[in-house]
């Protein structure tokens, strides 16, 4: 449920690093508590986001939640598949349901995130 190679934020987002690019999405816990995701509002490529700042919104039929970026930096890519077919966020939150990619500007940011075991402990 919470892969070991990812880092997690207390706002229920995950980060996967490859090089200096951070891929970001929401956790299984987040998508399950939201229920069927019907819409994600994502930022424009090229804009900057600060660590833990709001970058978008995610909606189910009867709820809306802000998305907070676990990593600050320039947004290099957004997942148009998630925008067009939001059900991928439910079906594959750590894979095809990723949301944005951010160019990490300061590796120290990663220290502020949790590993899988610590994150899971916060859910209990």
């Amino acid at each position: 449920m919470y892969p070991d190679d990812l880092k997690y934020s207390k706002e229920h987002e995950w980060v996967r690093m490859s090089g200096d690019i951070a891929e970001i999405g929401v956790t299984v816990f987040a998508q399950e508590s939201l229920g069927d995701v019907v819409f994600v509002d994502l930022p424009e490529v090229g804009t900057n986001v600060e660590q833990f700042a709001k970058f978008g919104e995610i909606e189910s039929v009867k709820a809306v939640s802000d998305l907070f970026s676990p990593i600050g930096g320039k947004i290099t890519e957004v997942n148009s598949a998630a925008a067009d077919t939001p059900e991928v966020v439910n079906e594959d939150p750590y894979g095809s349901g990723w949301l944005i990619k951010v160019e990490l500007n300061d590796t120290a940011q990663l220290d502020e995130l949790m590993d899988a075991a610590t994150y899971q402990a916060t859910l209990e």
């Binding site: 019907v38 819409f39 909606e59 189910s60 039929v61 009867k62 709820a63 809306v64």
Partner: peptide
């Protein structure tokens, strides 16, 4: 599209 509305947002 009820998330636009006052009872949710």
């Amino acid at each position: 599209l009820q998330t636009r509305e006052q009872h949710i947002r």
